[in-house]
Amino acid sequence: QHPLHYRWVLWFFKNDRSRPWQENLQPVTRFNTVEDFWATYRHIKLASKLSSGCDYALFKDGIQPMWEDYRNKRGGRWLLSLAKQQRHTELDRLWLETLLCLLGESFEEFSQEVCGAVVNIRTKGDKIAVWTSEAENQAGVMHIGHVYKERLGLSAKTIIGYQAHADTAAKSNSLAKNKFVV
């Protein structure tokens, strides 16, 4: 077996308004080898087949996929907002590429800044984000952003933005301003 640098936890969120938010977010499985990642990936639904309101999150073991976790509190996310029609053409490729960036430690020494990644399945447009631990670490955030954008194969004119969780949390409409863009 080929060990990964970290042990990762796959989480699943299903929006059930009758239950507290945190109860809707559950860890599905943990793995720390390349082989076990693929066994998991093959076993679960593709992101594009999930119902609206659901999320997958992949986070390093020990970090919860929420702003409140102390490893996320000062951090932020590189956010990719997809158009509705991209669910059927690009979402699964972009999410898998995101997973491979994380598992392969693609951000060099800044991979330790990465906390995890989230895909939100939403009627108005799906989102994919890479969460990092320190929004003020401009060098790390920018390196991750440049590598991530290149790996996703986005054109130069496509702009992705980085938002601090503290700014997102302060906005009820989730339109936090971009702290950085690539």
């Binding site: 060990p3 990964l4 082989e35 693609s106």
Partner: peptide, 20 residues
């Protein structure tokens, strides 16, 4: 050392049967 894998390496394992 750091376990760093490029995407092609990771993708090579996608359809391998699990080890027993």
């Amino acid at each position: 050392g750091k376990k760093q894998y490029d995407r092609e390496f990771l993708l090579d394992f996608q359809y391998m049967p699990p080890c027993i």
